[in-house]
């Protein structure tokens, strides 16, 4: 199955949703609107011919200074045609919310939690949108571009009072 066949079928079913088509490096990458994400995903998963049953990867990118600022990138894989499809959805800074795919693909659960934890992109209707890699009391989302690389001073007995005084959790 080649990119064109897939593209033609998606365009026929969803004429108005695809806003950008990118076929560089031989991969098919489509940008779709946030509102249509769930419908497109369900259609791709349940389609008798295409069968994109495997959600390979979910991740986010922070394009600081661009609108929409955030982009969620999905990679779907079809075990029937051995074809990979990339879908991208934008989310503005003021409202960084994207519908969760956990209802369609249970594997999205932790991957969405990771994107939430590290980038602050929220996934509506996610069963437990909590931090997964960073500590629960962490403030901020480290993979955002406005978070500096930064260094943490290591706390020992002799300097922990001074270090902890700057930590938000010490003030509680």
């Amino acid at each position: 199955m080649d990119n064109q066949t897939v593209l033609v079928q998606i365009q026929a079913a969803f004429p108005a949703t695809i806003t950008e088509i990118d076929e560089r490096h031989g991969d098919l990458k489509l940008r779709i609107s946030r509102e249509s994400l769930l419908a497109v995903m369900q259609w791709l998963r349940d389609h008798a011919e295409l069968q994109y049953t495997f959600l390979e990867s979910v991740t986010g990118v922070d394009y600081l200074g661009r609108d929409p600022r955030f982009e969620v990138v999905y990679h779907l894989f079809s075990f029937r045609h051995f074809h990979r499809l990339c879908l991208k959805v934008g989310a503005p800074e003021a409202d960084p919310v994207v519908p969760s795919l956990t209802g369609l693909f249970p594997t999205a659960n932790w991957q969405e939690r990771e994107a939430y934890d590290l980038l602050g992109i929220e996934f509506s209707d996610h069963p437990a949108l909590q931090r997964i890699l960073m500590p629960d009391d962490w403030i901020g989302h480290p993979l955002r571009k406005d978070v500096p690389l930064g260094y943490e001073e290591v706390a020992f007995t002799f300097n922990q009072d001074r270090i902890y005084a700057h930590k938000p959790f010490a003030k509680e």
């Binding site: 390979e56 990867s57 991740t59 990118v61 249970p106 932790w110 991957q111 993979l143």
Partner: peptide, 13 residues
């Protein structure tokens, strides 16, 4: 931006 689809992470689910 670099992202890794780490198989161990997703398998653990």
């Amino acid at each position: 931006r670099v992202h890794f689809r780490a198989p161990s992470f997703i398998n653990l689910q």
